[in-house]
Design a protein around this nucleic acid. Structure first.
Lengths: 248, 248
DNA sequence: TATATTATTGCAATAAAACGCAAAAACACG
DNA sequence: CGTGTTTTTGCGTTTTATTGCAATAATATA
């Protein structure tokens, strides 16, 4: 393999996973550690990556690392990590959009093998970094506000799908009123997503608990899992536990 | 064997395998290393390949690899700006993916009013920043390499569409061979995109001119506009102008 | 702090490239 | 046809690039 090809390979790995380990590259490219280190050094000299102890990091990733613009990011990371426990190899998963779902994707183990349907382009791009995940993007009208596809075409496609698990964020959940929303289009969309999945997990930060909005998506009983940043036995979650929702 | 024949042979190898080794060519052509090096040097001087230590690499291959640091970004901005002139209010536009198309979106005037169909999630997200553009993302399998949707579902949806204009990038264009590609899936996709549009504009940097790859997308006559970073009357474009392609 | 992992450095073997040169072939032209 | 010129090619030599190894230093991790 030519040196230039190795460099291209390394850059592709970097762009895909935001990081590379020297040891991984040694195996993948079957050259000595020294060669990989020199490669990384040269690429770093060109300003294409950050060389660190043990490997290298993507520049873009590094600069956008502390993305403090994401609201309540710490809570969302906790939620995302909990959600990954629901995913097992071979699963067919359907996801919505939103920062919490995006964080969930970033927390997935690198080698997981699954099929993901999603209505979020950003989630699709993030999922594409995983070699063993098949990604299907559900197409349709693209919403400027929520950054997901919606509308009749999406609902038609969802009607043909039966996923093992649906992961969605929400702007409101209430022990009596269930899942509710403000916009009719999003409401219709979520109904279709629920119908397209055997089980549904709702990911939301605690401040969205006990809120009911105008339009009802489903009763609380239709939710299989509720994932918040709170402890499983936190008192705020009593109302949901009583309705036999699994609290994670 | 004549020198020209050797050059043709080398270029065929390059387009077929994206790479050649000096040592292989020495054996295949039974000439000395010096001769091969001189051949590669001359072809590199003509801009037909990248000469590297140990051999040479295809230009299209190389530039499709590193999509982090956008290759030839200045040229792509020039191309993108030219392309925006093709867009008028009320138009229905279909776009592919790639860094050049993405740059094109960023160069669009803010108040333009149009409908955009796209197979690229990144393009969709960028288009969503424009208030008066309706964005429809065409869904399907998501390609980890080219970051666009593809496959049967995409082609079925394209079959129902008739856009005014299709904008696509390419890895190779040739005055006699037309538009060509290396991968069958992408080839099928581009054919469907062409069929779904009244006119087609191809955006590519000049180093992709006069290259023919394995699979043919369409003859040069099917292209309405060719947009490069070169001046309209540049001599490299003569072959295309003769085929009645509009050069921008 | 102790231990394991990862980096750095200088060095040597090998491979590739560059350079100058000369033989051979192709070409130009009276 | 002959002669001078240009092009092409290969050879030997020098220079440079690439790679792996071993000894040592730095860094991470328990």
């Amino acid at each position: 393999m030519l040196k230039k090809e190795r460099h291209d390979f390394i850059m592709r790995q970097i762009n895909l996973h935001n990081r590379v380990l020297t040891s991984d590259l040694v195996q993948l490219l079957t050259v000595s550690e020294d060669t990989i280190r020199r490669d990384l050094q040269e690429l770093a000299d060109e300003g294409l990556l950050f060389k660190v102890h043990g490997g290298a990091l993507s520049k873009s990733y590094h600069s956008s690392f502390d993305d403090s613009t994401v609201y309540a990011r710490d809570s969302k990371i906790i939620i995302a990590k909990k959600a990954t426990n629901l995913i097992t190899d071979g699963m067919v998963v359907l996801t919505g959009g939103g920062t919490t779902i995006l964080e969930f994707v970033k927390q997935l183990p690198k080698n997981i093998e699954a099929t993901f349907f999603t209505i979020s382009p950003l989630v699709a791009v993030e999922l594409a970094k995983y070699n063993n995940i098949e990604v299907i993007l559900i197409g349709g009208l693209f919403s400027k506000n929520s950054q997901v596809t919606y509308g009749g075409q999406v609902i038609t496609q969802l009607a043909e799908l039966k996923a093992d698990l649906c992961l969605m964020g929400t702007s409101a959940i209430h022990p009596e009123q269930g899942l509710t929303d403000t916009y009719w289009e999003i409401n219709q969309l979520k109904k279709a997503m629920l119908a397209a999945s055997k089980k549904t997990a709702v990911l939301c930060i605690s401040e969205k608990l006990d809120i009911a909005l105008r339009l009802r998506v489903c009763p609380i009983g239709s939710i299989s899992y509720l994932i918040t940043e709170l402890d499983q036995d936190h008192e705020s979650l009593t109302g949901y536990r009583d309705k036999e929702v699994n609290i994670l």
